[in-house]
Structure formats: structure tokens, C-alpha cells
Simulated assay, not measured.
Amino acid sequence: MKPAAAEARNSLAWQAQSLLLAYPDDQLADRLTLALKVAATQPKPIAQPLVRFAEHAARTPLQELAADYVATFDHRKRCCLFLTYYAHGDTRKRGTALLGLKQTYAQAGWQITDDELPDHLAVVLEFAATEPALGSRLLTDHRAGLELLRLALRDANSPWVHVLDSVSATLPTLAGDERTAVLRLAAQGPPEEQVGIDPYAPPMPAPGPAPVSAPVFLPDPVVGGPR
């Protein structure tokens, strides 16, 4: 596949994945419909996990799914949606990493709101959907954290593991050194130094997704052709 075609395909996938990682609310049915339309345009390794999650979400009462989301991402450290946490924990280095992400967004002419942290996976995927070359680099840079999150969701038997399976399928096959990084993070966990991460937020009580509790909304994807 030519690079331009691959970027267009991945843009749609990343947009759908971002929507599915948002908090389940009364917009969920529309998001599931869009995700299924996107899945129809994707290769099997990307599409099948999207379909599996959409089918689970469609047959689960909304209140139950929302409670599961909070229990998974707000109350489990190992299922943190903030990507820089896996490499840096709540240390000073994390503040630097957050600033770097925000600068990358700004250089691309892309702004996030004050109540969002730039390393939330749904935000990174949203950015990747609009800036696929830069977004692919960011996702690859945080590959160890992504894979660790995917393992944690699998261990928890969480339906959101399907979304992470789909994300992983859009990225290059893991190389040996990346596998080592994943194993090291799994064994050691992130650093434990607790400091503030201003100017983005006060000291965080827990690494769950509380600062981005509202869903990340995206425009409808243009299915069937390049963006």
C-alpha cells in the first residue's frame, strides 16, 4: 500500500479508536455506528477488534458500560490512559514530556482545551487522525506504554482491550528492543516520585483519566476515500 493510502486508512482507524475510548454517554450509539463503518474499510487485524468492541458495547446497558469504564480507567493504575505515565510516573520528567507533546500539537496548528492533558490516549489518537505522520511517530514513541496498557486490559478481561488491539495493529510489528521495554515496564512499573505537573494540573491523586472525564468529540469520519 502506498504511504498516502496507508495514512488515509490509519486516519480513519485512529479516529474511530479515539471515539471508542471516550466515556460512554448518550452519544455512544452514534460512535458505534461510525466505528462499524470505519471497520468496513480496514484490514482484518484492525477491523475485527473494532467490531468485537462495538458488538459488546451495543448489547451492554449504557449505565453498566459507563460504570465499567470508570472502574477500569479511573480506579486501576495499570489501566492508565495517560501515556507519559508509563515512562515517567508522576515525576518531573513527565511534566517535560507533557510540554513536549503540547508543543508538537501547537507546531501542527492543533490546540487542545485547558481541561485536557495532551497524553490522554484518546487525545493522541484524535491528533493522529488529523496529522497521521506526526501522530504515528507519537504513538510509536509511546509504544511500550500502549502495549503495557493492552496487557493490563487483557489481564482484566476488559472489553476495551479490543480497542487497544486495533490501535496496536495500525503500528509496526514490535522489534526486540520494544519488547524488552514492555517487559521492563511490566516488571518495574513507572517511577514513583510524586510531584506536580504544572502548568497542566495540580498534583494528581491517581493516574486515572479524571482530568479528561468527558468524551473527546470528533467530526464524522469520511468513510470510503482519502481524507
Rank of each mutant, 00 (worst) to 15 (best):
V51I: 15
V51D: 08
R52N: 14
R52Q: 13
A54M: 09
A54S: 15
A57S: 11
A58H: 12
T60W: 02
T60Q: 10
P61L: 07
L62C: 09
E64F: 02
L65H: 06
D68W: 09
D68E: 14
Y69W: 00
V70H: 03
A71V: 02
D74Q: 00
R76M: 10
K77H: 00
C80K: 03
L81A: 12
F82T: 04
F82R: 08
F82K: 04
F82W: 08
F82V: 04
T84W: 05
T84R: 05
Y86M: 05
Y86F: 12
Y86C: 00
A87T: 04
A87M: 00
A87C: 00
H88I: 04
H88P: 02
D90L: 04
T91C: 11
R92A: 13
L98W: 02
L98D: 02
L99F: 10
G100I: 03
G100M: 09
L101F: 11
T104Y: 09
T104I: 15
Y105Q: 11
A106V: 11
G109R: 11
W110C: 13
Q111R: 15
Q111C: 12
I112G: 04
D114L: 15
D114H: 15
D115Q: 13
D115T: 12
E116P: 05
L117D: 02
P118H: 12
H120S: 08
A122M: 03
A122F: 07
A122S: 14
V123T: 13
L125S: 00
F127L: 07
A128T: 06
T130H: 15
E131P: 01
P132H: 05
P132Q: 06
L134G: 10
L134E: 13
L134T: 13
L134A: 14
S136W: 00
R137W: 09
R137Y: 07
